[in-house]
Amino acid sequence: MSDGGAGEGGGTGGDGGGGDETAPSPTPITDADYDEWLDALAAGEGYALVCPDGHGSLPPRRRCPECGSDALSREPLDEIGRVETFSVVHVPSPRFADDAPYVTAVVDLGPVRATGVVRGVDPEGDAVEVGLSVAAGVEERETDGEPLVTFRPVDGE
């Protein structure tokens, strides 16, 4: 597989070589509106910010990113979301070193889509497909215990 030099793929393609060179993750930025949203999602009360034209977005927002409106109201996310696309990630970033392989998915939750990790499935199996019904929540990253947006199949486990 090696072409010499840096090795084909390396970080974008290689297997990461075990990750023992991993530098500590930078201190994450914090944002009160984002944290509040994450807490709400964890409590089963996830919401989107929706403008009068119906554009949904996730906080922090002072304006609708689609039309610029500042009339944003909180609307609940759908309880059951639909997987729109997904990927089984084998080569993680350092923050997910111990999580891989995992399934990342973009899920339609009504007013917005959200991106997260599908839990409660075998990543190497074929349990995840486009159209799968899932419920959104917040769990911990295996690598460092930080909060992570997750989806679980509603007919579950």
Partner: peptide, 24 residues
């Protein structure tokens, strides 16, 4: 190191809603 390049390239995505959600 490979891991740092992976992390660096991921900086081109949305940190809050993509990278923290496992998107490389």
């Amino acid at each position: 190191p490979t891991a740092e390049v992976t992390e660096g390239l991921a900086m081109a995505a949305d940190d809050l809603f993509e990278v923290r959600s496992g998107v490389t």
